[in-house]
């Protein structure tokens, strides 16, 4: 999830802009040309990197999406919007969008309450708190591929550990295995994703809880509030900004979901777990339909971009404004 870094930098970016604005108000000795030169000097390296690794790839994907191109030879077969037409009318792709959004919604519905509950529990003074905090966070630290391969083996039909446990308690595991049954595969992938990413939610929520001033808890105690009331009226509302930021990271991650799906199911069985990212990889490096892959990646980009922008505008704006 390379983008998480970039995305989480967004509030920080706002911070920088604010500081910059503040600085501009203070009178300066140097002339404007010198100031501009300084800016150019400091900004050029970053801009160059950005242009080479962000802007140029995006531009070439957009260009690719208007051609029929097999990945080699001259790119000269211009087809206009045909690749987009094909992608948007391909049921595999529209299903993939549905799968992505299923994961987005499930993540928030399941991981938010679960993560919050665990964070609130681990915030209490309980025995083995340090150990428990570590254990909960371990899956998130594991490399995605390693976690995927381990789960793939655990979920093997018949020989896998999961099937062993299920038949051990007298239930019948699905005949084709959890990953091989089209109706179960997406849910299974989601369970593994929850196992993997719950640690991040808990970590963020616990960090957020550190920011809640102790005085508030003390005051609540003096007023005779129960533990539950304290959490509901004080901790959770004050955790709002953290929760909203986490939800944003989770959404972006789910929209771009690739690694875990690729390892566990490769998008199968019967396209039951295809995501936009697995679709475009399959079309591009698998079938050499680079134009279609380009169109799919532009669609993915637009969806992600619009979602991020809308979320920033309507949900996160409150946080970034009231902060300062």
């Amino acid at each position: 999830m390379a983008n998480e870094g970039a995305v989480s930098a967004a509030p920080a970016h706002a911070e920088v802009t604010r500081r910059a604005t503040a600085r501009r108000v203070t009178p300066r000795q140097e002339g404007p040309w010198r100031q501009r030169l300084e800016i150019a000097l400091f900004v050029t390296p970053a801009l160059t990197l950005m242009a080479v690794f962000v802007v140029w790839p995006i531009a070439s994907a957009v260009r690719m999406s208007f051609y029929r191109w097999k990945g080699f030879g001259p790119m000269d077969d211009f087809v206009g919007w045909r690749n987009y037409d094909r992608v948007l009318h391909d049921q595999v792709f529209t299903d993939a969008i549905m799968h992505n959004f299923t994961i987005v919604i499930l993540s928030i519905l399941v991981q938010l309450p679960l993560g919050l509950a665990v964070a609130l529990l681990l915030n209490r003074k309980i025995r083995f708190r340090g150990v428990l905090r570590t254990v909960v966070f371990v899956p998130y630290v594991l490399a995605e591929v390693i976690a995927g391969v381990v789960w793939f083996q655990l979920l093997q039909p018949e020989s896998g550990v999961v099937d062993g446990i299920i038949s051990g308690i007298g239930l019948t595991p699905p005949e084709q295995g959890f990953l091989g049954t089209p109706d179960l595969a997406l849910w299974t992938v989601f369970v593994v994703l929850t196992w993997k990413y719950l640690g991040l939610a808990i970590l963020l929520f616990m960090a957020g809880l550190q920011g809640v001033p102790d005085e508030l808890y003390e005051a609540a105690q003096l007023d005779g509030a129960t533990w539950w009331q304290t959490q509901r009226r004080i901790a959770i509302p004050l955790l709002g900004p953290t929760i909203r930021t986490w939800a944003f990271l989770s959404m972006i991650g789910s929209i771009q979901l690739f690694d875990m799906v690729w390892i566990l199911t490769g998008g199968g069985p019967a396209n039951a777990t295809t995501t936009m990212a697995t679709y475009l990889i399959n079309q591009g490096t698998g079938r050499y339909n680079y134009g279609i892959a380009g169109a799919a990646s532009v669609v993915l980009f637009v969806i992600g971009f619009v979602m991020a922008l809308a979320y920033q505008t309507f949900v996160l704006r409150r946080d970034t404004q009231t902060e300062g």
Partner: peptide
């Protein structure tokens, strides 16, 4: 084999 829909061709013992 059970689970053949998700079985890989030649990677690993399973």
């Amino acid at each position: 084999n059970p689970g053949f829909l998700s079985t890989p061709a030649q990677e690993g013992a399973t």
